[in-house]
Design a protein around this nucleic acid. Structure first.
Lengths: 176, 176
DNA sequence: CTGATGTTTCAGTAATAACAGAAATATAGA
DNA sequence: TCTATATTTCTGTTATTACTGAAACATCAG
């Protein structure tokens, strides 16, 4: 395995890490993911340490997280005792998984919190009239988004791409 | 203005702040936004200080950021010298603005970085073959997403809601 | 102009999250 | 079983980001 990354790979890894951190994803996690994504074949944790120059433990934690998301998996290479890792390469599938996970972990709890607040506000009587109205609007928004997301999510990637392109056509018709 | 928030409002503000911080949005910024969203009428920075128990300067910074996003604006109340603030209440419009802003600030730079890496990798010759392939897939992904997003974005909220519900119908037909 | 009120900027501090390195644990082959 | 090697967990440190309070700046009424 190369100890030094090619400038192109290195540049991508850095940018990906940067973007991740802006969306609340640990920088190292995103970098590990980027490295795996551009790697032609499965690599070891040690390779990652060499490539990214981070602590072995940090790599271990990051891999664990990526495996928890289900986008990275352990693979075994004949004649090598060490674990090797690889990521999915289907970008659409990957995107869907990441979106699903983040929705589940960060959005869903908020949505149910909103629902709870809404019920409490309703129970509190007319003093919370405005609260009720605003939270209703928010809950409705989440419900529609959820529905739309679920239906798009269920589409196979190829159909989803078509839907998006179709969406573009619909958009142009409605907004010429 | 109430110095103490009602339990319902307080709960929502806390949850909203929590969610924001998980998506890379400053907690106080999100809390201020939540407070404004549930406020029946424009409130002053001082009101926000009382409600959230944070420093005046912190509120000032947060309001500036929210105004920078274009979802909060200064309004004047007759007979009061102080600035008052209010947020948009159209959740869909707000969502669109936030998405636009984040796309512009965090996604677009990454997309152009990917394009640059891709060109560099192409120029580097066959040694970067895999890099080229993977980055091409990624660039294609971004391009389709961008197109789909732009067309949905351009729809008026009511049409967008319909599109999402329609999307649900399409999805059910394709995945019964 | 001047003082009172309101707002923003800035430098230092505190809180949080990321990280390294060591220690502990697990596993495979001899 | 024992030893070498691989992996994970844990604790203390570092870096980053958020935040406070004070000072500077702005604006309005008198």
């Amino acid at each position: 395995m190369p100890t030094a990354l090619s400038p192109q790979v290195s540049a991508f890894v850095l940018h990906w890490g940067e973007m991740g951190s802006r969306w609340g994803i640990n920088r190292t996690v995103a970098q590990v993911h980027a490295l795996l994504y551009l790697s032609p074949k499965p690599i070891t944790a040690e390779d990652i340490v060499d490539a990214l120059q981070v602590a072995r433990s940090n790599v271990s934690t990051s891999l664990k997280e990526l495996m928890g998301w289900g986008i990275v998996r352990r693979v075994h290479v004949a004649g090598d005792r060490r674990d090797h890792f690889e990521t999915m390469t289907d970008v659409w599938a990957m995107f869907r998984i990441i979106l699903d996970e983040r929705k589940k972990r960060e959005l869903d709890p908020t949505v149910s919190a909103v629902r709870t607040c809404l019920e409490d506000a309703r129970a509190a009587g007319p003093s919370e009239q405005v609260t009720v109205e605003r939270l209703e609007a928010l809950a409705e928004f989440f419900a529609v988004m959820e529905g739309g997301y679920q239906s798009l999510r269920a589409l196979p990637p190829a159909v989803l791409v078509q839907t998006l392109k179709l969406g573009g056509a619909v958009g142009r018709v409605l907004n010429p």
